[in-house]
Design a protein around this nucleic acid. Sequence first.
DNA 1: TGAATAGTGTCTATAAGACAATATCCC
DNA 2: GGGATATTGTCTTATAGACACTATTCA
Lengths: 257, 257
Amino acid sequence: MTGTRRRRTGAEADGGERAFLAGYDARRYPHPSLTTDVVLVSAAEGTLHTLVVRRGDHPDKGKWALPGGFVRLEEGLDAAAARVLADKAGLEGVFLEQLYTFGEPGRDPRTRVVTVAYYALVDHGRFLEASRRSSDVVVARIEVPWDGETGGPVALAGPDGGALPLAFDHAEIVGMAVKRLRGKLDYTPVGFQLLPAAFTLLELQRVHETVLGRPLNKDSFRRRMLASGELEATGRSEREVDHRPAELYRFARRRAI
Amino acid sequence: MTGTRRRRTGAEADGGERAFLAGYDARRYPHPSLTTDVVLVSAAEGTLHTLVVRRGDHPDKGKWALPGGFVRLEEGLDAAAARVLADKAGLEGVFLEQLYTFGEPGRDPRTRVVTVAYYALVDHGRFLEASRRSSDVVVARIEVPWDGETGGPVALAGPDGGALPLAFDHAEIVGMAVKRLRGKLDYTPVGFQLLPAAFTLLELQRVHETVLGRPLNKDSFRRRMLASGELEATGRSEREVDHRPAELYRFARRRAI
DNA sequence: TGAATAGTGTCTATAAGACAATATCCC
DNA sequence: GGGATATTGTCTTATAGACACTATTCA
């Protein structure tokens, strides 16, 4: 028992925790701080990328952190993540989904901070716009040291190939985003979120391979995608390629928040 | 901007949220309250069950709530959920996993409460012990009004068949647990957690069918399970059944927290 | 012996992987 | 025409569903 809880009496013996809230002054006892961090993911050149921000202050000064911020008292969690995304990366209307909540007591050395992590998916083109806003913002390549959905922390590499050390437990958070994304890909049409509105089947396959970290069979990928009903031919084709141009498809029902 | 944030200056323009924490006094500004709620799930008689507690106080007095409690300042999220499980249901060593974090501003009428929901899996036998501890604790049948992994709120029915109205957004939380469980079943050996140490293939199939809410093909279920390598024959058989006794299996590597 | 479920074997339909053949663009 | 990739079609193999048949227990 800590100072935040009173002795429980008979009537409160079960379910009393909630009753307790009624007489509870939120300002009187310390709560954990609540933040949200967003793993903004794109796929390009066979690698997943994510946006990180250089920390200007201690602790972990000079290391790289996910864009994040406090959850305001009157603001929903999804809304807080969307706000962070808009503020830090200038992005709206992208796929955004809650990932996991990280709250080990030691994860931030200053005070107890619980963070509700989100992940967002964008096509690489929109991604690059965002990274041009500041030299403290970088789109890093994600290096995944495990196969399949094993999970665990990942490493980041900057545009010059150098390692970007991650602040706090953010390597775990990005790793969790990769793991989730790999899992989702098997049964949800999440790959489209990483591509522009129109794309070829090969581009879609490359995105899937990038997410999964392994090559896929072209024939069956093609069949599976066309049979899924998620794709819709645009009637247009690629232009200015030095081979037979591929047909362009679009996602039949694109979702976003 | 609320009073919880200062105006940002140039050096803080990106990543400043974290720097902000350094000079931040956690007791000076209101944070959301942080709780954890546990959806304790079992399978029996073709239906999923969960444990709920009758609320003795307003708001939602008389309605039924998931066992829950505050996350202590020095305590990890998993640890908080495990503590709630031990306190409220007397259960330890069961499968316990983070589910989702619910934090819409209006979900608790008194103050802003963000809850990190967990779900736990137990075999129905152990479950019943827990429910005998108090008349305010009930193991309810979960009635799922949607197919597959559609998601959405569910309803609860008490032992007498009457509806048990759920407090707050707990119908959503239980619904999310069912959805997650259905998704997990396809690719992880989570069904074993709902059974005692030794079980027959048909019992395992019934559990899967209960979770998924649809019948499964016996032959291919059998083949799939035996081929998965997750099962291990105990060498023993059922006793006292009025038909040919089935072989008892155990899970080859049972996991728990 | 009969009821009831366990467990085995076989056939068929479907989906995935492999591979060959043809099509269409730019140079 | 040559290079390169798109697209189609066929064959093989693995897996799921259907179904028939035998096995084993208790009443």
